[in-house]
């Protein structure tokens, strides 16, 4: 059996809100196989985004261990975690988070530049991805000229351009209408599945659960398999 690409062991995480302490994870454990699609459901504020932050090394657990592709993130320095993120992880956000001062093409090329792989081959890949998401002709446009759906497609292209092993998506369809949301998920299907890229996706919407290999939810600070989620196929 292959080594898990994401592994959480006994993770605890809480936040201070004023004088109160809000516990998000009490004792969370999780293991995700390479190439698996894991969808995380939960109410607002249940800690879904915190999980993504922990897995991407943006945040560190109070206790326990987060391992991604064999690396224990808690043992890495801030800089090492940043480099790890830039090289191995692709991010798709609910609000697209394209850099407003960069063109569509530049947005897609940015991860390549950051990882020092802005080669002719890299540029070709970016062009192919823009073509794949149907925006080949919009490369020179700035993000504010694009619709929400188009922006999210650019974000998908950006998340995949450096061929990450793991893609983290934070409610990628949350800001889109049903049809546009489906187009984005189709893109994931077309681009991630054949490459065997692992996807961790946070969502509210039960409709998308059918695409997942595994569905999780957070209950009382613990990650549980949520077979009962409507439409969940796991």
């Amino acid at each position: 059996m292959a080594e898990p690409i994401v592994e959480l062991r006994g993770v605890g995480k809480s936040f201070h809100e004023g004088d109160r302490e809000r516990v998000v994870f009490r004792d969370a454990s999780l293991s995700i196989e390479p190439g698996a699609w894991v969808f995380l459901f939960g109410r607002s504020g249940s800690g879904k985004s915190t999980l993504l932050n922990l897995v991407s090394g943006i945040d560190l657990p109070d206790r326990g261990e987060v391992r991604v592709d064999g690396s224990d993130l808690s043992r890495l320095s801030e800089r090492e975690r940043t480099l790890f993120r830039r090289n191995h992880i692709g991010f798709v956000f609910q609000f697209y988070n394209l850099i407003p001062t960069l063109t569509v093409e530049e947005n897609v090329l940015l991860p390549l530049e950051l990882s020092g792989t802005l080669t002719p081959a890299g540029r070709r890949r970016a062009a192919e991805l823009l073509d794949a998401v149907g925006l080949a002709d919009r490369g020179r446009a700035f993000p504010d000229r694009l619709s929400g759906g188009e922006q999210q497609r650019v974000a998908v292209a950006r998340a995949l351009v450096h061929a990450p092993k793991l893609v983290l998506a934070d409610e990628p369809t949350g800001n889109l209408d049903a049809q546009t949301g489906r187009q984005v998920l189709d893109l994931f299907q077309r681009l991630l599945r054949p490459a065997g890229t692992t996807l961790v996706l946070v969502t509210h919407s039960g409709e998308v659960a059918s695409l997942a290999d595994r569905v999780l939810s957070i209950k009382d600070g613990v990650l549980v398999d949520a077979a009962g989620v409507p439409g969940a196929g796991a």
């Binding site: 991407s56 943006i58 801030e78 800089r79 940043t82 480099l83 993120r85 830039r86 090289n87 992880i89 991010f91 956000f93 988070n97 850099i99 407003p100 001062t101 940015l110 991860p111 950051l114 990882s115 950006r158």
Partner: peptide, 15 residues
Amino acid sequence: RLIGMLRALGVSRRE
């Protein structure tokens, strides 16, 4: 917010 995005994408503090 932009800086936050860049950081999430892997831009280091030094950069």
